[in-house]
Design a protein around this nucleic acid. Structure first.
Lengths: 154, 154
DNA sequence: CATTATATTGTATAAATATACAAACCGATT
DNA sequence: AATCGGTTTGTATATTTATACAATATAATG
């Protein structure tokens, strides 16, 4: 009975991580279905095992149970009050939103920002105390600025 | 068929919260057993429903699955680097450990400290930027100081 | 007060997840 | 090449969790 190993553990793990980062999935069958749709043959047991290895968390978001990666979960558990204390100023020009933080907090705040869904950003570059936020489009820089401001300081 | 309601929903919820704060429990049956031991009659369904209402999360601590309250989970997800940035100085006298934080962060840091297990403290009192930590015994104030220092700044 | 609407509870069971076990795979060693 | 030890995988199923449904309790309304 040779076992058909179509997909390596490493690849599968990466696929599941990618999925969890993109979608709010609540069951292992849902994860399985999503992977099957992408042509990745997997069974429930494998999903279960990999989730365990990833240290996946099952949490409640507004009454809905979802799986999250630990790194993703930070976003949900870092108290807002803490974040506020790390940020000095948020400004923008025509093409960037710029966030000033207290010394040494640039990377950490940037990471939390990167994890935030529904924010139209391409990405962030962070130094010691400064974060450059690149918007998806510079056309709505004002909107993005307000969104980030509300997110981080309100 | 009158239903025997021995324990109100509010009381049960409080009991489960207390339990989750004290013990690393991994299954609803475990929660049920612990409550039965305390003379609290409860069934699995009730446990499930209350956990859901509490927004309990299931997380992986060193390979073991445990239920945690959201407020408790903060401790696990607040990045150390963030904490470090909030704390200015940690000192002590013969009877207290005193933590200075950046302005406005006293309460938040105190809360995280209160959530930390295996710390021999009676409690904390926090102001805007200062936290007084009361040890269980003043005999080992130096030890506690070192423990807190390592916890928060190392 | 009576009536209606909503929430809670328990039983039974469906759904979701993890485990046991055997077989296959893999890398290291001889 | 064969052997060994450790890991991974799949099948079957045990365990864990949540839901459906009906009954009861509680809250709201007139």
């Amino acid at each position: 009975m040779p076992r058909k190993k179509h997909y390596s553990s490493t690849d599968l793990s990466a696929s599941i991580q990618g999925l969890l980062e993109k979608k709010a999935v609540g069951t292992q069958e849902e994860i399985r279905d999503a992977l099957l749709k992408k042509g990745i043959p997997v069974n429930q047991v494998r999903v279960s095992r990999i989730l365990h290895k990833l240290g996946a968390i099952k949490m409640n978001e507004d009454g809905k149970i979802v799986y999250r990666l630990p790194s993703d979960a930070e976003k949900y558990f870092v108290p807002k009050e803490i974040l506020k204390k790390l940020i000095s100023r948020i400004t923008h020009n025509e093409s960037l939103v710029v966030i000033q933080t207290v010394s040494g907090s640039g990377q950490v705040v940037a990471r939390l920002l990167d994890l935030t869904k529904n924010l139209d950003i391409l990405g962030t570059v962070a130094g010691d105390d400064t974060i450059f936020v690149a918007p998806k489009t510079t056309k709505n820089i004002e909107t993005l600025f307000k969104k980030i401001y509300n997110l981080l300081l309100n």
